[in-house]
């Protein structure tokens, strides 16, 4: 019991960081994913650079860069800010590929039907393509958000008192290693499979209410 209370306090930090970083990741994923399909070459190139840069370097290296290097440029970010934006922008790069893939997977015939109804490009995207892509991108986003949750454990290395940090601290203080780390793993598992997965499933059901994809 004496372990549970501090661990739950750490879990609260983990949940907060994960929730806010998810918002950042989703926003970045949408913007960069759409930018990769933009009609302007320069915008597309910029989006490719973003994705390659953030996927190509390691998340922990990125967090350290924000945390240790930026101050040398006179920019001091709070560790919470680094955690939220560092993780969000990293997962957002993967999310951009999900968004792009889902949009590209909407059949060409849907674009053509919308053109035949004289819809301008922005309207086609917003009303016809994105709603269909949205449903297709939910399952991969579910996986990404679990990756994001796991990624939040790295904020323990930039001084934030999240679940992992508290566990390491308790371990040194009490040496009840097995109990502590087992509990922590179970807590992460519950957050992933007990919260994120059902939430995404629920969204999937809502998004596909009524319509069944016809096989054409």
């Amino acid at each position: 019991m004496d372990l549970i209370v501090p661990l739950l306090r750490g879990a609260r930090v983990t949940i907060e960081i994960a929730a806010l970083a998810s918002l950042v990741a989703i926003a970045v994923g949408l913007v960069v994913g759409l930018a990769r399909l933009a009609p302007w070459r320069a915008v597309r190139a910029l989006a490719v650079c973003y994705v390659e840069l953030f996927r190509g370097t390691s998340l922990l290296v990125q967090l350290f860069w924000w945390f240790f290097v930026l101050p040398h440029f006179g920019i001091f970010l709070a560790p919470e800010t680094v955690g939220i934006f560092g993780i969000g922008m990293n997962i957002g790069a993967y999310g951009a590929e999900v968004v792009r893939g889902a949009i590209r997977a909407v059949p060409r015939a849907q674009h053509e039907a919308a053109i035949a109804l004289n819809m301008p490009p922005a309207l086609r995207m917003r009303r016809i393509i994105l709603p269909q892509a949205f449903r297709a991108m939910l399952p991969p986003w579910g996986n990404l958000l679990i990756e994001l949750l796991k990624g939040t454990s790295l904020v323990s290395l930039i001084t934030l008192h999240d679940l992992t940090f508290v566990a390491a601290q308790l371990n040194v203080a009490t040496f009840r290693t097995l109990e502590i780390f087992s509990l922590v793993l179970v807590l992460y598992y519950l957050l992933a499979r007990g919260v994120i997965t059902p939430a995404v499933r629920w969204l999937e059901r809502r998004a596909s209410r009524g319509w069944v994809r016809s096989e054409v």
Partner: peptide
């Protein structure tokens, strides 16, 4: 797969 590698390393 649902739990962090970092914690598994510690474990």
């Amino acid at each position: 797969r649902s739990t962090p590698l970092l914690v598994q390393i510690y474990f």
